[in-house]
Nucleic acid binder design. Sequence first.
DNA 1: CTACAGTCTACTGTTAACAATCCGAGGAAC
DNA 2: GTTCCTCGGATTGTTAACAGTAGACTGTAG
Lengths: 231, 231
Amino acid sequence: MSKSPVTPPFERRERRVLTDDVADSIREAILSGRIASGARLIEDELAESLKVSRGPIRAAIFRLQQEGLVIHETHRGATVARVSVEDADEIYTLRRALERLAIESACLKATEADLAPMEAILLVFQSVPRASMTRRRVAELDIDFHDALFRAAHHARLYRAWEALRSQILVFLLLRDGLPDDYLTSWHRDHSSLLAQLRERDVAKAVSAIDAHIQAAYGRLREQLLQDSPA
Amino acid sequence: MSKSPVTPPFERRERRVLTDDVADSIREAILSGRIASGARLIEDELAESLKVSRGPIRAAIFRLQQEGLVIHETHRGATVARVSVEDADEIYTLRRALERLAIESACLKATEADLAPMEAILLVFQSVPRASMTRRRVAELDIDFHDALFRAAHHARLYRAWEALRSQILVFLLLRDGLPDDYLTSWHRDHSSLLAQLRERDVAKAVSAIDAHIQAAYGRLREQLLQDSPA
DNA sequence: CTACAGTCTACTGTTAACAATCCGAGGAAC
DNA sequence: GTTCCTCGGATTGTTAACAGTAGACTGTAG
């Protein structure tokens, strides 16, 4: 045992490798809409524009497939995943199952240090002037809050399942336009309520709270989707 | 629309590529114990013994990492994942959440054709003489039954989450030695009961049935693990 | 005009060589 | 003896060239 037993002084910061940068670049291009939904991802093109060889590109595409942002077919290449109303249904039913387990597990295992990041996000939310809150920023804070919850669950496999969904949820959050005036207010109320329940350690209440939270989010999304593309 | 609208004549059988074979080989080596838990997977060695270059090996290792059989660290290589009692806890709590959603979804969406594979497995189980049922065979039929359930849920993302767990569950099923005499009997009873409830389309009953099923499986596993490695 | 066969091109899958990193062995300083 | 440094071998990350496939394109027959 050479490492300090209490509060590791510094995490071994994991080395970044080309694949990581490539994956970040492509992910950002997809989320920002610079690469359209359904578009083909051609390895040579990406390799040239990112100034790397095809190896890291292929690895990054594989990773993004794991995240559900791209679809890869053998010998036919990768395309940016299209999202439909049925996809929203899949994503939110699975998300619900995962978040229920996450908050249950977090109630049992989370330390105060685990909850601090969530607290911090709520503070940021309050302190930043509302006018400067872009859709993107709100969406990212939302994802970050839930990400912190999944981390607080101390459940590696659950976290990986969440990672496979996270970016897809972000896609949905980004395509909504014009939030209701009171959205920011209710967002803060809902999330600080979740955090409070987590501190109470009352599993049953926390689970039903997050359940309602996810269902409400799904309801809003459904409304938006049906409005955008009327049947 | 050029394709026949009813019962597609033949599925487009998806092309297999070297990476697929490599992943199968390594997975089999791990499950059969030929590569020990915790052992390093050295790309050059694997490449030489499988007569392919390192490219497909790397891709296969990433895939196996996704399945949870292998742990890969940047610049340090891959090792066969070790499983502990805590891992069992993670795997079975997550599995429970997934199976609940699966049977719920299957109750709503499964056709009789989706249930046929499950029926078939039950028949195989009955028809094969018990003496010839190896641990491996029993474990595989068990996994196959649940795999059919997840397919019947018609939920692509849920299925992928299940895929990330499936091999790890198989690892646990394979390390049990000497099943109770009545295990095969109760296995058949439990699973045909699940199938029956699925046909009833009663979501609430089906969910609580599979919940009990998974919890019982976890209980047996826990007992075994604690017995093997006494605290 | 439609259906079909052969060819051609753009792309992915695979390979082998090159570059960078980790980690332990061995020695120097104290 | 212990700690630190350096060096070298083993192993992974990256590259660029080669091989094979899918789908479009052309032309031809009916």
